[in-house]
Amino acid sequence: MTTTPTAGEQIVHARGLTRDFVVRSGGWRRTKRVVRAVVDLDLDIVAGEAVGYIGANGAGKSTTIKMLTGILSPSQGTVRTCGYDPRRSRRALAREIGVVFGQRSQLWWDLPLRESYRVLAAIHRLGPGHRERLDELIEALDLEAFLDTPVRQLSLGQRIRGEIAAALLHSPRLLVLDEPTIGLDVLSKERLRAFLVAERAAHGTTLLLTTHDMDDVQRLTDRIVVVDRGSVAYAGDLPGLVRRVGADRVIVLDLEEPTPPLADLPGTRLLATEHDGLRQRLALLPGSTAAAVLAEVAGRAPLRDLTIEEPDVEDVVRRLYATQRAGG
């Protein structure tokens, strides 16, 4: 049963979601320790949204995803995904969602890639119409060349493309990607992102993405949720997060000749100078533009080259964690 997503429909609705794990350690004297992987988490995703779910290793991202998809039971709290209680209706929900765990495979290791789609079509009860969908995915993800290769012989990039096709074959309403680009080279990542953008444009699939790759976040999501120690540390858009933690874009100026530190340029804050002022790094303060700064620089020193560094989101998240911990 597949229904077309209607705008504003809740795809994920989680309230007070909590998951504890009991960790046993030690030899003779066994100690039990309760680790709170996810603590009192609220999360809402509406149909058609693309949400980046980010946080450090161990922040609780994967545990959350497993609770949303019915793989793990919450210790406390409630969650509904695509209108289902994931634990009670795991199988019905599985027909509505596609999941890719970047570090695990859902393909049949020993068999040609093509076989995995045949089995998945059968277990998802897809009619003959699925061939059209499969052809579309083969074309878009460029799978044709290795459809008859056993999965164990595929390169990582090929396998991940195969995994994405497997997750999308049944045209799910929600696509969950857990670190999909991990280990891929720059070109493969870029092609995968282009595919996902086009796929979402064509089918309106809701996307929940966990990643450490900030280019993924920038290219693929329109909203981010940052988790820290199991709780939401930030929810909003990326520029908002950058503003909140005060991470600035950085202009790196390479000048023709040694120049005294440009400490008083309006709209900037001097970060560092190198080589007697031949290279100077300036933080671009909110509200000012690179063009205005350049015009100002031109009057003071001859410019040879410049680069603009976007804030690194990994760094932004780190700063967010730091402010959170300082504050609470």
Binding site: G70, R91, A94, R95, V99, R104, Q106, I123, H124
Partner: peptide, 18 residues
């Protein structure tokens, strides 16, 4: 042991029967 059981649980099948 490897946690790949998560993949089995993300399918619309009864794992024992499958």
């Amino acid at each position: 042991r490897s946690g790949d059981i998560a993949v089995d649980l993300s399918r619309p099948v009864d794992p024992q029967l499958a």
